[in-house]
């Protein structure tokens, strides 16, 4: 069985989500599987409709506008596009957090089709327990 990386995406800011998709890319490049658990503010970004407009982390401060502009000009792919492309070459799975989904009344159908399933934390920890590394972003 392939080695695995487990990621927990918590923050919904674009920079942290991108960090997650880039680490997932690195894992796939190293022949590893990736299981991603998406919760709280990151989960909101997976809503098919009514997802909050993506922003950068507060520490971007005054540079925020400028950096968003540069990323747009240089056509940096969105984190979700990166994950979508990864699925062509590796085994990457996206799971929604059942707790937060229930809290907001969100179903699997309300989330991006890339979401394989909405699962509880116990099932995710079970997936993560044999992974080489687990990161919380």
């Amino acid at each position: 069985m392939a080695e695995k990386v487990a990621l927990i995406l918590f923050s919904g800011t674009m920079d942290k989500l991108m960090a997650g998709s880039i680490i997932a890319s690195g894992a796939v490049a190293n022949g590893m599987d990736v299981d991603i658990f998406v919760t709280f503010w990151a989960l909101l970004q997976l809503k098919k409709s009514g997802a909050p407009k993506p922003t950068l982390s507060p520490e971007a401060g005054d540079m925020s506008k400028q950096i968003m502009k540069i990323m747009q000009e240089k056509k940096v792919p969105s984190w979700l596009d990166t994950i979508r492309n990864l699925k062509d070459i590796g085994n990457v799975n996206l799971y929604g957090c059942a707790m937060f989904a229930d809290l907001l009344g969100l179903k699997k159908e309300d989330l991006d089709p890339l979401v394989k399933d909405v699962i509880g934390v116990s099932q995710f920890v079970d997936m993560a327990k044999d992974s080489k590394m687990t990161l919380f972003l």
Partner: peptide, 10 residues
């Protein structure tokens, strides 16, 4: 990074 590498792997 890591776009070009990922395209190469693909």
């Amino acid at each position: 990074c890591p776009g070009p590498l990922m395209e190469m792997i693909k």
